[in-house]
Write a protein that binds this DNA or RNA. Structure first.
Lengths: 358, 358
DNA sequence: TTGAAAGCGCTAACAT
DNA sequence: ATGTTAGCGCTTTCAA
């Protein structure tokens, strides 16, 4: 029971309801005497304002909804944490819905958020199949910031040049650097492993990868491999098949934190030594990549920055500072060189079928 | 703008406010005709009830607060995710506050939750310094479930035998099994690395460890080592110092996910081969442990079960199904044998100072 | 079965 | 500067 209301405080302080409200909200038009008495009374009674009632009256809930595919993914969790910290400083409460990439649940969560009257939303959906769900929110006037996903195409209501507010990571740039590095090492058969080739992060990466192949005049045929591995084994099975195949890759790029685990496990299963027999690169830097023996070369970007930038963008909109100029952020990606990549010359020393070129 | 209220629906359906409310809440006393008309009107107008208003009226917010030290820790994230799923099924919204082990923020979060009128709370505080903060919540009538932490001692208001509702993991049992295993392998100098020896998980583990040493009649002197490493390097520096020291341990148990990373890195830095030169065990099973070469023997328990059990316990209380009987859960821990532990005989082949017993 | 009306705790006009 | 009053959108007696 909340028990103690603003009314009780008013009575105890011997002033009116309105005065208490004003005093507590640091409002103007409060005499020092009243301010003191109210504070004392509130304190003594252990009064705590009821957000629900306040929200109903002010039409702002002070809550921000966060739609994320899987909060148990450390990458997402770190982003959410950083965003939460920023939002809390600003007085907002972050409400998280983990939708598990299920479009139905995404839709439901968006609806729920709407019903709860969140003031704004951070969305990083697992599929863009239901942009409509949160588009509806936007239409209803709720500010939305997209986090590392493609913005909807906006076939209909697009007003030329208006981009959806979004925080994105320069995955394409990162992929370009990585590919250049691998190509420079001498690799030609490079496999990209990803669980989803169509959504933003992976799509951008694949694009960057291809661009560099094209620029170098190398034929990427057969090089790229996308798979939707059963989420259970994180590409372990697929990697095994790939490495046992005819023209096995000399380098594997794991697009996605958990895929790296599957790849490493597969390499171990086959007795391949990294980087002698196989070069491995991780997209996304984690404990696993940093601490593995050998340490895994990885593309890294600041998850904290992503979370913070998203929160800042949203806060700016919540405060009504429109300005299309600042409505988009592109964060850099670094290539962290470690010990898991080497020239392919030394690789696959004596395979059963010594095929063509070295 | 919410724009479309229950009033609009009533008007569109040609019935009264109250009827709409009843119809929408599947209440009794609604004629088929009214039910149909209301549903149609609501649907057509895209009506969505306002949770805030409803909450104000019903005195239940439909929200559950979750106080967790660090949501970006994969272990916590997984627990939270499982709890969230369960609670959502039951119509509750989970609100997460990541307090970063900061007592001040924990207190603030508890207060905030209280102000937001959460219906219940899941707490896994980073310190038990402010049990009082959420004790206040309990006193205010909010059901609280403790997750893998010690229950408050309840010096004052304890009613004999009443335990705080809690979900706990049998870390002590796990530690006993682990220690027995290591002792059986022949290890005598075993180091336990932990960031916090006083809070529940670690405290229980250390206790289990000691018990087995005592039972085996082995002197644990010098064996146990607790450190509060600068959270930055996750025990990396401490492990280095430890391994370079005089009577370096032959086995290290990393209590805590991230500590394992520091330990492995330190071993690698010193050129120690696991398990030949050093046995390593992880408390908590992660990608890193499972996929490392060699794979790390680990204590494992189901994080999903923890989250689910916590949610279930809370839901039962929210529904008023008291029953002290079911107010406590103890979840089992398994020892997953992998490749990172071996007899110490083969270890430290030629140390500078060959000391006493083999 | 339905409608009218009260009121949840708070804030914001509008008096004073 | 302070008090009075009218709702925010909903649920819930209480009458009809």
């Amino acid at each position: 029971m909340s028990v103690v209301t603003i009314r009780d405080v008013a009575q105890a302080a011997g002033v009116s309801l309105a005065s208490v409200s004003r005093a507590l909200n640091g409002g103007k038009n409060v005499s020092a005497r009243v301010a003191r008495d109210v504070a004392a009374a509130a304190d003594r009674l252990g009064y705590q304002p009821d957000f629900l009632a306040r929200s109903l009256r002010t039409r702002t809930s002070g809550m921000v909804g966060c739609l994320v595919s899987d909060i148990s993914n450390p990458l997402n969790a770190t982003i959410v944490k950083a965003a939460e910290a920023r939002l809390r400083e600003a007085g907002y409460l972050l409400v998280v819905a983990s939708t598990g990439n299920d479009p139905g649940r995404e839709r439901a969560a968006a609806a729920e958020f709407r019903g709860r009257r969140v003031d704004g939303m951070l969305v990083a959906p697992g599929s863009d199949a239901n942009a409509k769900a949160w588009r509806a929110l936007v239409a209803a006037g709720t500010p939305v910031v997209i986090v590392d996903r493609d913005a909807p195409k906006d076939e209909d209501e697009d007003e030329d040049g208006v981009r959806w507010p979004a925080v994105q990571v320069d995955h394409r740039g990162g992929a370009r650097a990585a590919t250049r590095y691998l190509l420079g090492l001498g690799h030609r058969r490079i496999a990209l492993l990803t669980a989803d080739a169509v959504m933003r992060p992976s799509r951008e990466r694949i694009q960057g990868f291809r661009e560099i192949f094209a620029e170098a005049g190398v034929d990427p045929a057969g090089a790229r491999l996308c798979l939707q591995s059963s989420a259970m084994d994180f590409a372990h099975g697929d990697t095994l098949a790939l490495l046992r195949g005819d023209s096995a890759p000399t380098a594997i790029v794991a697009l996605g934190t958990r895929i790296l685990a599957g790849v490493l496990r597969a390499a171990r299963d086959l007795g391949l030594v990294v980087p002698r027999d196989l070069s491995v690169m991780s997209v996304g830097d984690t404990d696993l990549a940093a601490v593995h023996t050998p340490a895994i070369t990885a593309l890294r970007w600041s998850l904290e920055d992503v979370g913070r930038a998203a929160a800042d963008l949203l806060l700016r909109r919540l405060r009504g500072e429109a300005g299309h100029a600042q409505s988009h952020a592109l964060l850099p990606v670094d290539l962290v060189l470690r010990d898991s990549c080497a020239p392919p010359a030394a690789q696959r020393a004596m395979p059963v079928a010594p095929s063509g070129t070295s």
